[in-house]
Design a protein around this nucleic acid. Sequence first.
DNA 1: CGCTTGACCTACCGACCGGTTGGTAGCACA
DNA 2: TGTGCTACCAACCGGTCGGTAGGTCAAGCG
Lengths: 205, 205
Amino acid sequence: MPRVNDPAGMRRRIVAAAGEEFSRRGYRAGSLNAIVAAAGVTKGALFHHFAGKLGLLEAWLDQEVAPALRQHWIEPLAAVDDPVAGLRRLLEAELARVEAAGPEGALRHGCRLANLAADAAGVDEAVRARLAALYAEWRAAVAAALARGKAAGNVHPQVVADDEAAFLVAALAGIATTAKPARDASLWRAAFRAAAAYLDTLRAP
Amino acid sequence: MPRVNDPAGMRRRIVAAAGEEFSRRGYRAGSLNAIVAAAGVTKGALFHHFAGKLGLLEAWLDQEVAPALRQHWIEPLAAVDDPVAGLRRLLEAELARVEAAGPEGALRHGCRLANLAADAAGVDEAVRARLAALYAEWRAAVAAALARGKAAGNVHPQVVADDEAAFLVAALAGIATTAKPARDASLWRAAFRAAAAYLDTLRAP
DNA sequence: CGCTTGACCTACCGACCGGTTGGTAGCACA
DNA sequence: TGTGCTACCAACCGGTCGGTAGGTCAAGCG
């Protein structure tokens, strides 16, 4: 069978395989050999397209993790001025995704961003900074929505948007992480019910 | 210099070094060679006392991680019937510990239990079960305190203790994890302020 | 004292790690 | 059709991994 040059497709396949491997085993323990084997390419090809293991991680972060975060958690908040209702919708959507993915999805792997924070933040300064920036972007989106909610009279005026955003983002990441060892969707549901109740307390009186 | 047999001290030194290494680099990426070098012992001694890397992890979990969790988060709740006040005290104590430990402590390493959940839960079934049990114990302690608070009239009767416990434990673990890449104590303080405000909403009217 | 048992050490194993090498094949353009 | 550049490949590198084999030595016991 003849060889065909397809650099874009090659990059995509490698990043996809790397995402699988990093999700399953983490960055530090993830193996380049396993990635190239799963992608059906050689290590030479990997090193031709990416600057080593760290470059591969950054590509995955930029091309898959960050876009998914923005799509699911940041952009839907961009224009809402009733953040309590908006965030409750996002919780329900996330729960639906988790249950749709089944036991091989988030139930087993937890939150990709939280896993990277636990695993890869100490490896490289640039990666640490990028993870910190992603979390900051997430918090900023939540805080901005809460601020708009206050301005629109939908959120209690005493709510401190930045504090609540830090707490909420931490809780969301923590739910995925603490439920991971139990592998039990009912833990997600319980925590999300409480999260929804907490969101209701932020409403204007 | 003559050799002295001190099996108990040897075990202690090895577990301490393993805890350092697993805290800093995680379980999967942590190296037995680094552990024995830091402890000043040989690998033969390590394998004489522990059943390999997994045995070492279990010893660390049982002898350091679990006792610390119980001391800081479980036992202080054992008898309180005003869990809102009790949990707020625990938050303040945790914040004091984080700030006292400085940038080389929890700020850099996050929550040990959450790190293990992200890193080691997929390695071994027994480890996964033990982590799940530890989280369950933590949640149960919080839920029991909330239930006592309801009985004593200190907690709103509509509060669902199990749901709130799952949410609260997730939030606490998540705060340490999401703040790790930022290495900024002010993030802890912001999230803890919001957590305290959330706890107040659980009070009886 | 001799003997036994467990504590501990030196030296080493095969496997796998991330990364590099020198080269060949595809393909746009002359 | 030839030339040059990029895409890609097979083989291999030094180093480190978790783990083991087989020995020496300390110390309690008769």
